[in-house]
């Protein structure tokens, strides 16, 4: 790892000021992606601004809405009793990320900002029609995930929290890569009743995306049979040593059916 200067501000305003004043500053939340990347010298920031001093964590649930602060760890999301009641699928998703030690440190803000094509949260944010609230604006999930590791965040923009309406039912189904446990394919299905069904897919393409043909079929009839005829094209799917594009396309259908069967 290259040397850098370390900062741990206590207030968001100070973090914003710090990151803007540094030549090549980098924000750090749980460090679960950033530190391995710096160890490999793929990132070499002049300054690291650690957000863990902001105390910006916690899940709050009202009758209709969930708000998760950016610094909430995967372990906290997985064990939130309010969230387990309101949106059990999201708590379960958080409990499937990596391993217990990673979940003790890694955060929702860091995961969303990083936008790994195989990360779990992006599929949920898309399916839940979530809003990403930053220090300066609110970005809809649909406009947030751009492509491979690319989001709508501007340089130095800091995520404050994630918000979404509570769906009538939802579920996440993941086919984990047997070695890394990241999603080979993960499908999040959320049923918003009259407002329709949304389907977020991760792991399959360069960036998480919505499978709109499935959404249409499921809005009319929320059943595994309803999507049996939806053709998933392999054209722009990821292909690597773990799975071919065709196999990933197939998995999208299988994971979606499992999620539909499990939705509650």
């Amino acid at each position: 790892m290259y040397e850098f200067e370390y900062h741990r501000p206590k207030k968001l305003a100070d973090a914003v000021k710090l990151i803007k004043s540094k030549k090549e500053g980098k924000l750090m939340a749980g460090g679960m992606t950033l530190i391995p990347t710096m160890k490999q010298r793929l990132a070499s920031p002049t300054d690291v601004i650690d957000l863990s001093g902001l105390g910006n964590s916690g899940v709050s649930v009202t009758k209709t809405k969930v708000t998760i602060k950016a610094g909430t760890t995967h372990a906290e999301v997985a064990s939130s009793s309010d969230l387990k009641k309101a949106v059990p699928a999201l708590a379960a998703l958080a409990g499937m990320i990596g391993d217990p030690h990673v979940r003790h440190k890694g955060t929702i803000g860091g995961s969303v900002a990083n936008a790994d094509p195989a990360a779990d949260y992006p599929s949920a944010l898309l399916a839940l029609n979530a809003k990403v609230v930053t220090d300066s604006r609110t970005i809809e999930a649909d406009k947030f995930f751009k492509s491979l590791f690319e989001t709508a965040l501007r340089t130095n923009e800091i995520i404050k929290q994630i918000e979404f309406e509570i769906p009538a039912r939802s579920a996440y189904s993941k086919f984990p890569n047997p070695a890394s446990r990241y999603a080979m394919v993960g499908v999040f299905v959320a049923d918003f009743g009259k407002k329709g069904v949304r389907v977020g897919v991760t792991g399959a393409k360069g960036s998480a995306y919505r499978e709109k043909a499935m959404e249409k079929a499921l809005t009319a009839d929320f059943s595994a049979d309803a999507i049996a005829k939806v053709k998933i094209k392999a054209d722009d799917m990821n292909e690597d040593i773990h799975a071919s594009a065709e196999y990933r396309a197939h998995l999208v259908g299988v994971m979606a059916k499992r999620a539909i069967a499990a939705a509650k």
Binding site: Y6, R8, G31, M32, I35, P36, V48, D50, S52, A75, P100, H101, V102, H104, K105
Partner: peptide
């Protein structure tokens, strides 16, 4: 009180 990977944490933090 929480198990973490000490290879992926900064001492200063």
């Amino acid at each position: 009180g929480k198990a973490i990977k000490s290879c992926t944490a900064l001492a200063v933090a």
